[in-house]
Every structure is written in C-alpha cells, then in structure tokens.
Design a protein around this nucleic acid. Structure first.
Lengths: 259, 259
DNA sequence: CGGGATCTTGAGGATGCTCAACGCTAGTGG
DNA sequence: CCACTAGCGTTGAGCATCCTCAAGATCCCG
C-alpha cells in the first residue's frame, strides 16, 4: 500500500451532534412560510417552486443544525432522507477498507445532499463547521416530484451539473500535479464565492489541511508544503483564520492547468 | 509538469468516420418499429417507454455507425444531439491544454451519451471500436421529456447512477495504487459483462493500454508492467485479441481494495 | 498556562514517470 | 512472397514527485 490518505478512525464526533430543537429558520423573518424567505432558495432545488408549491414543501421539511465534525449521513445506510444545505460546509467522502479516505466534494449553502443508489446512500457526509439543513423524507419528496415535473427537471439539471464537476475532478485527480491541484482548488472556492456574490479574490478555508489533501488525492504534508511554496512565490497570501488572498486570479488559472 | 498522460495530437481518425447511410437497425427484424425490437432497450433510456410511446421516439431518431477512432462529439461544441449507444465501445475524455488526457468513462451498449453544461458538451467522445448509435436532436428529446415524465425519471435515475460511479472513480484516482487501479478496472469490466448476461470470468479489452492508462491516471508503461505482474502471480491470464481470464474474482476484489 | 490538535518543516525513500530500445502483428507495396 | 513500415505492447534503467516518518511550531480552548 501507499498513496497517503487519512487513516485515523475518524475519531470523536461529539455524540450525535444533531440538534432538532433549536433549529432556526434559515432566514428568520416573521413570515408564516420560512421557505418563501429562504436566502438560498434561488441557489437550490426550491428555486423551481412557486409560493403556493413551497407551502407543500414546507409541510414535509424539518430544519436542523449539525455541530462541526458530526456525521450527517453514513454510507451504506438506508437512504431515508434527502437534505438541502442552508448554511455551513459539508464534506462528502468514501472510505477504503484500510481507512484511506477520498473526499468527493464539499457542499455549500444551496447544495443538495443525498444521492442514493438502490435506496442506500452512496457516501458518507459530515459537517465541516456548524451546518444548517432542511431535511425531507425521501418518500414524501418523491411524491412531490411526481406532482411537480419542473421540480424533477430542476433536480435533473442539478445532477447534470454535479456530473460535469465530477468529471473535472477526475481530470484533477488523474492528471494534475500537486501544485496544479492546489491552485485548482483555490480557484474552485474563489468561483464559488463569486457565484454567491462575495469577493472572489479572498476566500475562507473552512476545512483542515487533511481534508484538502483527501479531496485532492494528496497528503496533509504535501498540501502544506504547496501552500508554503505558493506563498513565497507571491501567488497567495495566508491570513489568519483560514483566509487566503488571491491577488492574481489569471495567474492562478494558468497554474491550475499547467500552462 | 509530470504525471503521464497521452500527449499525441489524437492523430488520424479517418475522415469524419461517421456513416449515416448504412446504419442498420440494432436488431434488424422485419418489424416496422425497430425500437420495439431493440436488443438494448431494457438497458437503456427507452426501457421506460411503452410501445406506443416508442413510436414517438422512433420519429426523432437517426441511427448511425461510427468507425474506430472517429470522433463522436467534441468538448465545448454546442450540444445539439444526444445519443444512445446500441453497439460497440465509446470513450469519454477531457484534455488539459498541454495535451494530458483523462478518460472519464467507457460506454457500452445501452449507455447514454451527451450530458451537457450550458448547452455545450462537457467532454469529448470517440469510438473505441466500431460503434452503433441512436441519435436524438436535443430539442426534440426535451419535448418528449415534458410529455413523458417517467422518461425524465428514468434519466434522473441514470444520472444518479453515473454520479455514484463517478465517485467510485474518484476514490480510485485519488487513493488507490497502480495494482489496485488495474484490478478495479478488470472487475468493472467483469461486472459489466455479467450485467449483460455474459461470463464475468473472462473479459475483452476493446481499448488500448494507453486508453486504460488515461482512464486510471497511469502511464501506458505502468499499465503494461502491472498486467505482467498480475499474470506472473496467476491473478489473470492474457489470451489473444485482448481477452483476459480472471480465474479468481474474489481475490481480484481483495486486490482492488488493498485488503 | 497547559495540552491537544493542527500546521509546518525536514530527511529519506518508494512508487510511478521519463526516456529509450526492442519484439510483435498487421497492412502495404514492390 | 517478402521486405518495409507503423502502431502497439513490453521491458529496462534512471530519476522526480510525492509519500512516510519524525520532530518542532503554532493555535486554540479550557
């Protein structure tokens, strides 16, 4: 065996870490239908629905919050629920029998969670920081899909996008060097920030070096070394609390593709 | 730069290589509706449709054959058509600017081709051997999707499956060793053969070592060396014409996951 | 202020890549 | 009919990138 990968037993993840009681509405206005006022509605599945339809959704949703490092779903567990992420960051991952881990994606607000295969989750999901979710029973949501074909269309569109992203990630994992991988990752976060109206030239890394490594197919040490090199070359600046400044996005794009 | 990858200019691919005229029906019986008699119908999108609905599909389909190594679709080209593969093997790939290539999948009969992003293909596709396709204009197929919600549902199911496969491939690319990668690949082909009713203990490699390498994130040489090692360890037998015998599938599964 | 986790840095080594040569097969044309 | 060529697969030698193992630095929270 070789090829890095976190091999710890995924350690302490604070009891269940899931809190149903104190879950606030994503955008707590005084409305009777929090979905209508949801700040991530347009980013997400629910953007396909009218206000009237939203009230149907409202009836089957449970809002909850999850503490950092707490599990959300577990691979091979029956897929009873689907989730919509309304705040925080979630990592999806798969494990090999000996503990090597591959993170297949980081989810942000508006992202959808719960793709299943034969009614069983295809991966595990864990909160990176404090996370807010909308949870739907799968059977109920499927009924809604039958009623609202445009909801199904939206879901198909989201799945297609994920597929395209997955293919980009395969190129990264199979053919890019460590430096190209790290630069691609920084660019991904930058673009994600821009899409959400933030400044793309400074990003926040919510996840650890180990998580980044398991996402890029590298070890923690290689990620750290690559950051150091990029910093001393002036490509990035490392600030406090996981903030990374990207002074030259065009240069970063070139470094991400090896040109 | 480093990290292998075919860098040839994708060379000669015999004119356009696409032949519209001589395209036979997949299963040439004397029926008026070839779709109804299609041998891959159950594997594929069309399995969701009744005979009456099939005749609608029949009206928008064009059958064609493609010669080995000929291009089928080109990344970043407008996505005017979608395809259903009825025979042969197709490879999907993406290129980096310097020519490094990642093959994101091999398609077999029954597989669907043409996922798009913003009306543009997300990858290129090329025939590995002689290929038969059903081609649908995208706009026409989308109209059918609106009419037949169960068709859309089927498509969503197929997309979900692809997503799950893509995640497995990320684990392979990011965390497996060369030997594990090759064994995983052989197992994949074995399972695919079994699903199609063939014997899973002997498979046929339609693609070159270079293609296998670009699929697994390895070089041709490493693929070749790994085959040689597996052969001398008795894990596989190499026969003529790309046939590989897999005497012990359980052993192969262990080798594929490093246990 | 202490202790655990995370991040960084270093030294050494292994896996898989690069470059190169050779064998094999099939197709071509003299 | 057979040399000739082109494409593909195999094998070898050397080496670079990235991993492993280890120790020290930094940060965070109690």
């Amino acid at each position: 065996m070789t090829k890095g990968g976190t091999k710890e037993a995924l350690g302490r993840a604070g009891r269940s870490g899931i809190d149903l009681t104190a879950a606030p509405a994503p955008n707590p206005l005084g409305t009777s239908n929090p979905c209508a006022a949801c700040s991530v509605r347009d980013l997400s599945l629910c953007g396909a629905l009218s206000e009237a339809e939203l009230s149907r959704l409202e009836k089957i949703v449970t809002r909850l919050t999850v503490e950092p490092h707490a599990p959300i779903i577990d691979e091979s567990e029956p897929a009873r629920y689907l989730f919509n992420l309304t705040g925080g960051v979630v990592k999806l991952y798969k494990l090999l029998p000996d503990g090597r881990r591959q993170i297949t994606g980081f989810l942000y607000e508006g992202d959808f969670l719960g793709i299943a295969m034969n009614d069983t989750y295809a991966y595990s999901a864990e909160a990176v920081n404090q996370v807010s979710l909308c949870r739907f029973p799968r059977s109920d949501l499927e009924k809604l899909l039958d009623e609202f074909p445009h909801l199904e269309k939206r879901l198909l569109g989201m799945a297609s996008n994920e597929l395209v992203q997955a293919q980009d990630q395969m190129v990264l994992l199979g053919r890019k060097t460590a430096k190209e991988k790290v630069c691609s990752f920084l660019l991904l976060l930058s673009r994600r920030a821009s899409e959400r109206g933030a400044d793309g030239s400074a990003i926040h890394l919510a996840m650890s070096r180990a998580d980044i490594g398991d996402y890029l197919g590298l070890t923690t040490e290689t990620v750290s070394r690559t950051f150091t090199t990029l910093k001393s070359n002036g490509v990035i600046q490392l600030r406090e609390a996981g903030v990374v400044v990207l002074p030259d996005l065009e240069q970063l794009e070139e470094l991400a593709e090896g040109t």
